[in-house]
Design a protein around this nucleic acid. Sequence first.
DNA 1: TACTCATAAGTAAACGTTTACCTAAGCTGA
DNA 2: TCAGCTTAGGTAAACGTTTACTTATGAGTA
Lengths: 331, 331
Amino acid sequence: MATTIKDIARRAGVSAATVSKVLNRKDAFIGEETRNRIWSLARELNYTPNSIARSLVTRRSNVIGIVVPDILNPYFTELVRACDDAARLRGYTTILCNSDGIAENEEAHLSFLAGHGVDGIVLSASDVVPNADLLRGLGIPFVSMDREIPMLDCLAATVDTDCRGGAFQSASYLIGKGHRRIAFLSGSAESSNTRLRLEGFREAHRRAGIAVDPELVRCGEFQHSFGHQATLALLAGTRFSAICCMSDMLALGATVALRESGLRVPDDCAVMGFDNIYLAPLLDRPLSTIDRRIFESGRIAIDALVDFLDGPERQRSAIVLETSVVERKTA
Amino acid sequence: MATTIKDIARRAGVSAATVSKVLNRKDAFIGEETRNRIWSLARELNYTPNSIARSLVTRRSNVIGIVVPDILNPYFTELVRACDDAARLRGYTTILCNSDGIAENEEAHLSFLAGHGVDGIVLSASDVVPNADLLRGLGIPFVSMDREIPMLDCLAATVDTDCRGGAFQSASYLIGKGHRRIAFLSGSAESSNTRLRLEGFREAHRRAGIAVDPELVRCGEFQHSFGHQATLALLAGTRFSAICCMSDMLALGATVALRESGLRVPDDCAVMGFDNIYLAPLLDRPLSTIDRRIFESGRIAIDALVDFLDGPERQRSAIVLETSVVERKTA
DNA sequence: TACTCATAAGTAAACGTTTACCTAAGCTGA
DNA sequence: TCAGCTTAGGTAAACGTTTACTTATGAGTA
């Protein structure tokens, strides 16, 4: 049986309210001696406040929910860690949910988080567009990262990476290196995310006066396996001297496929990634990629959310992060 | 303002208790019509139970806390995902804490989790030996993974990997391939974990009648950077034809160092990992390693914990997982 | 008729806090 | 002397549920 405020009150010969005031440092009108007695009892009895009871009355939990498609994907691992660190710094903790990119899962998680009284939610990229009615019904402030989102009262912020710009940089870099036939690998063709990136990719070609062969663009998912499989398919059907991948995992998959086919990276085929996950520089052949400041984006998202929660004015913010190319060994 | 049970009660013209009974399916003595009215109101008003209030009275939260050193480490990423999946299957959700291997952090997290009323905790490997008094004081059932732990009432289970056996397998495999001078890279020399692995490593040599050169064993941490640095140091001071690493990240670091030094893997030097993280087969040069059934271990830990929580008999279990060698391209 | 019994629902306390408001005592100053 | 302030602390309601216990109604039975 854990110690409660009442136990302390009884032992100290005061009321529970007094104990509460002292422990919460709202003790302007509490006597020196009483105050000390309470603190030392709290220590002695190893008192830990019951956050559940506290949340029930204050309607604040100091918990932020994070929903991502899959923590196993290194990009999300980093994002989650960044959010967790940032949240902790601001006095919040996080609770994580994996949606696997499935709409029903995501909705279930949202309800779960609401029921558990999280103060805010960060909703991270995936192709699923969350049910606006659900979000509105929850009424919990949230920040949206890298996804199309309906405008709602409880939308605290959007933080997006300039994916169009990132893809543009990647393709331009490759073109600058003399490549003329560049393959493009990305996630679902329907997502706005892929659409924007493809625009950036095309724009880079346009500026260089190069036509994009539709045969070279392959959309599917951001996973390793698709990178592997799509590269094999490309290799079988056409020729190209570089692959512009829209995630580092795609790039990893592509690299493996190239090696399996007896091609050397970057001599026979250059590979560019996207994300700059922390593994990228650690690989046997360090990956050239587009940095998207994962850690920073997590921190920014949390800061925006907490500012919204704590600040009375509740201003919405729209942040977009610029990317940059990181030259390593694969392109 | 979210819908509460009272809102439904008022609209349905019944008491809150009745609504609670219906919604919790303890409605043996509730009229058919009342029941229907309540359910349809719940749907219509989009009722989500307030878990906080519920937990306060039931003293059950259906939440399990997980504390790991660092989610960024792929081994823990997988473990956490495995635990989360397993927990969800059994009606629990998880809440994650990163301790960074720092004792104070871990203790703070433990208190936090207790205050938030988690039903159980899984405490995963790190060299920090948790404060027994703290654990006992919390009184929350926990399972300990891969760490030395004092025996306590609230210890629900221990799940350990047979690290001694794993190291033995790894070294034996390498010896079987003809290697005679094998370097050994592991984490902190003080941890029981490393001690056991070193024993296994030595045992394999003993059986083969090979002496272990102390110069070849290097302990530090399980991270990539140590693998890199230690390999460079080894290369500068002695010779060897294989490296037996006690984590896949160490192996990755070692591989990079070897390549930087112009050595080919496995021709000039073989490398064995340990863990079999999901990245291992996906690398440009798929990593040979020791599989430790990460996913399974997470599931087992959660199952043991939940069995302990749900079962009235509360039997403690001690599980040890066997390892196996996975032959790929680096050894 | 008067009892029991099943059915259907209500009452109220409890979980551990926080907080708005109240009280009581002592002191100050005119 | 007494209104009014300051200081120290108490009272009780509230947060949204759950649950043990109680009540009311009608039907069946002796």
